[in-house]
Design a protein around this nucleic acid. Structure first.
Lengths: 291, 291
DNA sequence: ACTAATGATCGGTATTACCGATTGATCGGA
DNA sequence: TCCGATCAATCGGTAATACCGATCATTAGT
């Protein structure tokens, strides 16, 4: 049994005339006759009652017709869902992102879902390491992070934009009004920083070590939003990329001088792997947004 | 797109291993690979994500899988319903019968539905002419009647049993206790007969004419059951086949002598037409019942 | 009785499903 | 780090079959 035969059968059952059905299907009458016969042989049951030059559906044919139609319909629906996917009318986009890029991500999500409201967007926040692991097993479509993945055999990265690390303080904080701040001054500020393991934190620790300074870290958190909320109380400052604080009007970013603190935000894909349409489109929107 | 390809795709999606799937499907790995590729080409969309020696479903593949499964399921269900039909687990049996055979019909229906409770039986009572018309356009599966259809090019008949016409009287009626009655004696009885057009009535009229007798016909009815109920009042007698009165204990049948009044009950099919299984089985049950 | 219409059948051709062998790549273990 | 095992893709050849045109048999309508 093949869909081709079902198609021939259904059309024949509708027209109850093999010759017309054959023309309608752009095949010869003999082919149609043979294919119907083949289907009947396989089912070991007559589907049509040939009486004279007329054909009628047998009881079996009538019963079978429903299922044949449905089978064709389902196959067609499958084809259609693929077309919808091409047009981004369905599907789920799974994004992995580090907290530092949540601001950028949020605005892109808003724009994306406006254009493609039927695509579900699932965001997975986590550390770069965790996210790359998930990317490896295709649990997510791509990763937005500041980390450049080392293994270029498995991953494929593209730099989105540069974002300098800077001091982030609430407007009420004494340092908020400063034009700039030297890296060594960080020692005199109460800091709330991302927990160890966070890429930015590890990067910072490296910087601190190299500059032989040891700032006061009162609080460390594994949630950037909570961190920023703490900063908004005015009790602490933090150090993050400028992009991290975008959208929060009551926070000020103060450039840190005395050392190069540029971080490269990048998008990372699984190398040589199929990229779903929604992912490609979304990444293009991100690039446009930052470019 | 063919069911074969969908079958290959589904199994491959389940095992996520082309080699195993190919073995499972009893085809070569190369064939499987080609067929999957062909399906992907038609959909213009990758269904599998080939990464290294692994295959994963793409988002499109995942979406398509549901429909592919359903399409296969429907085709299979169609096949199953045909099998059920062969085993008489579904379907409708449409029987045309003249009233005279209702008693026989009833008992066979009881037996049939006991064996095949899932087959619906629809009985169409009417005159032989009406029923044969319906048989011609396949509205019913066969006709049970006393009439032998003249057109043997269209119809195909088989005699089920002989049933003599006899006088039917209520136990309280004076004639009920007679052992036999001569055809000429009918003139002295008040008769209730089937309406003109009914086969038995037309046959009787012919007999009356040939014997030059004119019995008193007080009542004529186009409903045999009503006719028998009238007879049960004791006011009238009627003339029907013995089979017609079977099952009614308060009626007596009195053989009519002096003329041959044998009627042949027959089953009539549409010639050279497909006979549904239920119809064949039912007719065999009738033959067994009368044999 | 004749004619047009219809489905089945037959022989031949083009397509294609299928296979085995091979290649290229990857993975896991020694 | 190398080697063998594993896996999917590809190629060339073969067998199966979908398809066609021609023809035949039957039938419905004139």
């Amino acid at each position: 049994m093949e869909l081709r035969q079902l198609k021939y059968f259904v059309r024949s059952a509708e027209l109850l005339n093999f010759t017309e059905a054959a023309n309608d299907l752009f095949i010869s009458q003999s082919t149609l006759s043979q294919q119907i016969k083949q289907l009947e042989d396989e089912l070991d049951m007559l589907l049509f009652d040939r009486v004279g030059k007329r054909v009628r559906l047998t009881e079996a044919g009538n019963l079978f017709l429903t299922y044949a139609r449905q089978s064709l319909q389902d196959a067609n629906d499958g084809k259609q869902i693929i077309e919808d996917l091409k047009g981004l009318k369905v599907g789920t986009l799974k994004i992995g992102a580090t907290y530092g890029l949540s601001a950028l991500l949020n605005s892109t999500i808003v724009a994306f879902t406006k254009l493609y409201p039927q695509v579900r967007v699932a965001v997975d926040f986590g550390t770069s390491e965790d996210l790359l692991e998930k990317l490896k097993i295709a649990e997510i479509d791509f990763v937005l992070s500041f980390l450049q993945p080392p293994d270029t055999n498995v991953f494929e990265s593209e730099i989105l934009f540069d974002s300098k690390l800077s001091l982030i303080a609430h407007t009420s904080h004494p340092f908020a009004s400063k034009k700039k701040i030297d890296v060594k001054e960080l020692q005199h500020i109460n800091l709330a920083l991302p927990a160890k393991g966070f890429n930015t934190r590890d990067f910072l620790e490296d910087v601190f070590a190299k500059n032989k300074i040891s700032p006061t870290v009162n609080v460390e958190l594994n949630d950037i939003n909570m961190l920023l909320q703490l900063v908004e109380t005015g009790n602490w400052c933090t150090v993050l990329t400028i992009a991290s604080a975008s959208g929060r009007t009551n926070l000020r970013t103060v450039p840190i001088t005395g050392i190069e603190l540029t971080r490269e935000a990048s998008i990372t894909w699984l190398k040589d792997s199929y990229r779903k349409k929604a992912a490609t489109v979304f990444s293009e929107m991100i690039k446009k947004q930052v470019g």
